[in-house]
Design a protein around this nucleic acid. Sequence first.
DNA 1: CACAGATGCTTCGAACTCGAAGCACAATCT
DNA 2: AGATTGTGCTTCGAGTTCGAAGCATCTGTG
Lengths: 172, 172
Amino acid sequence: MTGPDIDLGGVRLPEPRQLEAYFALTEAVSLLQHHVEQQLRAEGGISTVQFQILMALNGVEQLTMTQIADGVVYSRSGLTYQAAQLEKAGLVTRRPSPDDERATLVAITDRGRATVGKVLPGHIEVTRRLLYEAVSADDLDRLGDTMARVRDHIREEPPRSAAPRRKPSSKR
Amino acid sequence: MTGPDIDLGGVRLPEPRQLEAYFALTEAVSLLQHHVEQQLRAEGGISTVQFQILMALNGVEQLTMTQIADGVVYSRSGLTYQAAQLEKAGLVTRRPSPDDERATLVAITDRGRATVGKVLPGHIEVTRRLLYEAVSADDLDRLGDTMARVRDHIREEPPRSAAPRRKPSSKR
DNA sequence: CACAGATGCTTCGAACTCGAAGCACAATCT
DNA sequence: AGATTGTGCTTCGAGTTCGAAGCATCTGTG
C-alpha cells in the first residue's frame, strides 16, 4: 500500500499523485455538498444533516439518538439540536424508550415522509447532474468500491483520544 | 435502506450502485475530514479552513480575498472572519491593494509558514493512515482522476443562484 | 464628467456546531 | 442493598457559518 515516498527534511511527503487525489477528493465533495445544501434548503427548507436524519429514519420504525448518530457523522449535542428542530417542524417525534428510560426513540412522521418525498427528486437531480453525469458507470462503480473501503477502514480506526504516539521512529 | 425498487413520492431513484457510490463518498469524506480537523486543532491550534487558507498562501506572495475564496469552497463573509482570526494570531497580514482600493491583499507571515510546517507532517500522516493505506496505488490514481473530473465538471456549472442573469423587471 | 451598475469586501443577525459538563437512569461490584 | 461506574442524552458557552444588506471603490456609457 505504501508507495515510494519522497523524503524531504525528515518529512515523508506523499507522491504528487496521492496529494492530487486527496485534494481533488475533498474539493469535489465540498462543491457537491454545497450544491446539495442549496437544493435541500430551497425545495424543502431543510439542511443536509436534517435530510440525512430523515433518510435514516425513513425505512425503519424508530431509532434511538445513538443509533442515528452512528449512521451520521455528527456530534451528539448537534444531533440533539437538530432532532429538536425537526420535532418543532413536525417531521419527527421523540419519546423516551419504555425499555430504557435514558434512551430517546425518534420516529419520522407522515409529514416528515412527505418532506423527503418532496425534496428527493431535486436531490437526485442535483447528484445526477453534478456527479453521475461527470463519470462513466464503470468509474462510478469503482469509485463506490474504493470509497466504501475507505469508509470501512476509517470506521475501524481505534479511537485516538489517548494514543498520540509522537515518534519519528529514527529509520534513516 | 429499503428494497431494490424504491418509490418515494412517485420518484424513481437511481440504481442502487449509484446511490451506494454517492453515500460512500460523502460518508468517507466526512469521516476523513473529522479526523483531519482533530489533528490540525491538536497540533497547530487551527481549523481546516484556516489550514487551507494558509496552504493557498504558502507558495505565493499574496492573494486577494476573492482569489482565496475561489480556491476554497467558502462564503465570502466566512472568509473575512477567518482572515481576521488568522491576522489576530499573526499568521497572515492584510492590507488594501494599491491598485484597487477595494481589494484586500493577504499574505502569509513567517509565523504562518512555521505553523504550516509544524502541522503538515501530522496532516500527511493522517491522510496516509486513513486514505492511502486503505486503497491501492492504482485505485488511488483512478480515484484522483475521477474526482478531478467531477471537480472540474462542477466548477463549470453555471452559478444558478449566485448570478442573477435575469433581473430586467422593475426599475428601482 | 456624471452616474448607474458592477465589484470587493465587511458588518450584521440568526442559525448552527462542537466539546465539556451535567443529569438521570442502568449495570456492575462488594 | 448501597456504592461505584457506565451509558444516553441534554444543556451550556464559546466559536463558527451563512446570506443579506451595507459601504466604498471601480468601470462603462453617454
